[in-house]
């Protein structure tokens, strides 16, 4: 269908107007209801960024964008990594434990995700039952609080913490 017709003709203009109408309907009508999936997805994937692009572009640092995208999954590894000691072998808690304190899924409890965020450290995931006993550092979460507990520290009973980790497993 590649006939060479004049670009500007009465029919051509009518068809272009129809096309504008089709585009308008596809991306603008019925987005709030379930009637038009194209409009809803356009709004969430393109329209939203268009509205907020100016404010988004003010975030010049990649760290700010990482936080905007990954939120606590970015923040928690960033908090933990610099506080690890060379002798630490950190036990990453199960995802269910992390989920209790986060809105998003606690992907940071996956050692691959942890490595992607902050590089390679001595970390053992919870499901590594064979190595779990080698761990000597543990993450404690509480509402709006996080810290690293080590065996022998006074304020955390590690056995109770491990029982807490295992809850909901």
């Amino acid at each position: 269908m590649t006939d060479r017709l004049p670009v500007m003709s009465r029919q051509g203009v009518i068809l272009a107007i129809i096309m504008v109408g089709v585009i308008y309907v596809l991306i603008s009508v019925g987005g709030d209801s379930d009637a038009n999936p194209y409009a809803a997805s356009y709004q969430s994937r393109i329209g939203l960024y268009a509205e907020k692009r100016d404010s988004l572009n003010k975030r010049r640092q990649m760290s700010e964008r990482m936080f905007a995208r990954h939120v606590a999954n970015y923040e928690i590894p960033q908090y933990i990594a610099p506080r690890l000691r060379p002798t630490d072998t950190l036990l990453l808690p199960p995802m269910s434990y992390g989920n209790r304190y986060m809105r998003d899924k606690a992907y940071w409890t996956d050692p691959r995700f942890f490595a992607w965020m902050v590089g390679f450290h001595n970390v053992i995931p919870w499901n590594d039952a064979a190595r779990r006993s080698q761990a000597n550092a543990f993450i404690v979460l509480e509402p709006n609080m996080i810290w690293i507990a080590r065996r022998g520290s006074r304020n955390v009973n590690i056995d109770s913490l491990l029982t807490e980790y295992g809850r909901e497993q």
């Binding site: 051509g12 203009v13 068809l15 504008v20 585009i23």
Partner: peptide
């Protein structure tokens, strides 16, 4: 082959 007006509208989006 040349573009039509409707092509131009579509390619704009």
């Amino acid at each position: 082959w040349s573009l039509s007006l409707s092509d131009i509208v579509t390619l704009g989006l």
